[in-house]
Amino acid sequence: MKVARVSGTVVSTINHPLFDGHQLLICDYLDDSGDATGDYAIAVDLVGAGAGEDVLVLDEGTSARQTLDVDTGPIRAVVVAIIDYWERD
């Protein structure tokens, strides 16, 4: 997983059926000091993350599909946790 910050949402009515009923969050990946690196992912929200929250983004298909309990489908990036606190030694 990677640490990211929820910075936006994607509203979409025409999409692959797997995404129906799921919130799509734009997550900015963060560097060690918590600043946005510029890289981002559009991730399916599984935990109800809100704007500005730091989250864990999983970006791997097989495990992402498991979280939705499907064995096929174009899903890769999912928000799997809302971070309370993180620090880099």
Binding site: S7, G8, S12, L24, G52, P74
Partner: peptide, 25 residues
């Protein structure tokens, strides 16, 4: 995986059209 039948030889697939991409906070 996005296409039906799946596993056709593509490496990029459009899976949604954006109505709005809004910035929060």
């Amino acid at each position: 995986e996005a296409l039906d039948p799946r596993f056709v030889p593509v490496d990029h697939a459009i899976v949604g059209i954006v109505d709005a991409a809004e910035d929060l906070a």
